[in-house]
């Protein structure tokens, strides 16, 4: 294994350009597993962990910028995150266990592109934007547009995740994060979900966002159900229809962790509970 270490962002971009195949190393919690299995033998690693500039949570005009190297442990305790993006804080608290939370980073998690990334449903409903940087410049992608498939992203060779921009959401009427894992901790998600709901005074839906993880190759927003719900009151037939529409945007599978039927039924039940006001909080 070849090991490169970047001490400044400029050096990181230079090295990434020179070694476009190099695997970026942030917290290393996923790479360690691959390394142990021999999958990194002969590969080049680019260590980004010394880049302090990418490890900050900084206020921005309409929200905050979270550096790629910010750990889950910091996100789950950060006062601003707890105030404006509590579902993200909650999701970060369900990642692995305390050891993985302390090492694992938001940027590393996104780059790893697992369908079971716990912070992804919150980032999807907060409509985060991901800042990518390479030697020639910067670009920004909507969070959902980063992913190309299971463990695949649209990052170009030599491109690195610099930060994640979180816009301030208007205060929701109701919000929810729920992880259904294989056990209480150190668990990979069977499915997990995040929801934000804004109601008009008359009870009609002004806006709703709901996202599911582990239900498709990448994290999914429930576009069909969301669109159907906008402008409607949450009466029984409307909720029934929305719950039915959930299936339109996901494609869960049978695997060693769970079944297609269970994933779908559990997600629909939680979605129903959220819309009916039994699950989630204000």
């Amino acid at each position: 294994m070849r090991f490169l270490r970047a001490r400044t962002p400029e050096e990181a971009l230079r090295l990434a350009e020179k070694h476009p195949d190099a695997k970026p190393l942030a917290g290393g919690t996923d790479l360690m597993v691959a390394w142990n299995a021999g999958r990194l033998d002969g590969k080049t690693m680019l260590d980004l962990s010394p880049l302090k500039a990418w490890a900050r949570i900084s206020p921005a005009k309409d929200g905050a910028d979270v550096g790629a190297l910010v750990t889950h442990a910091r996100l789950m305790r950060h006062p601003e995150v707890l105030k404006f993006w509590p579902l993200l804080a909650e999701a970060c608290g369900t990642v692995g266990g305390p050891q993985i939370q302390a090492r694992g980073t938001l940027g590393g998690n996104i780059a790893n592109a697992s369908p079971a990334g716990d912070p992804f449903p919150p980032l999807a409903v907060y409509e985060a934007r991901v800042r990518l940087v390479h030697a020639g410049g910067r670009r920004e992608l909507a969070f959902l547009d980063v992913f190309a498939g299971v463990k695949k992203t649209h990052l170009a060779p030599g491109e690195l995740i610099e930060s994640v921009h979180l816009p301030h959401p208007p205060k929701p009427s109701r919000q929810l994060f729920r992880k259904i894992g294989t056990r209480a901790a150190q668990a990979i998600s069977k499915t997990m979900m995040a929801g934000l709901l804004w109601l008009e005074r008359d009870g009609a839906v002004r806006e709703v966002r709901f996202a599911l993880g582990s239900m498709a190759p990448t994290v999914k927003r429930l576009h069909a159900a969301e669109e159907f719900l906008r402008g409607r009151r949450l009466d029984r037939p409307t909720v029934d229809k929305a719950v039915e529409l959930l299936a339109a945007d996901v494609s869960p599978i049978d695997d060693v962790r769970s079944t297609r039927a269970y994933r779908l039924r559990a997600a629909q039940n939680v979605f129903r509970g959220f819309l009916e006001g039994r699950l989630g909080r204000s």
């Binding site: 266990g97 294989t182 056990r183 209480a184 901790a185 150190q186 668990a187 990979i188 060693v256 962790r257």
Partner: peptide
């Protein structure tokens, strides 16, 4: 994936 209980 073979899930044994943890202390939690």
């Amino acid at each position: 994936d073979y899930v044994i209980p943890t202390a939690l």
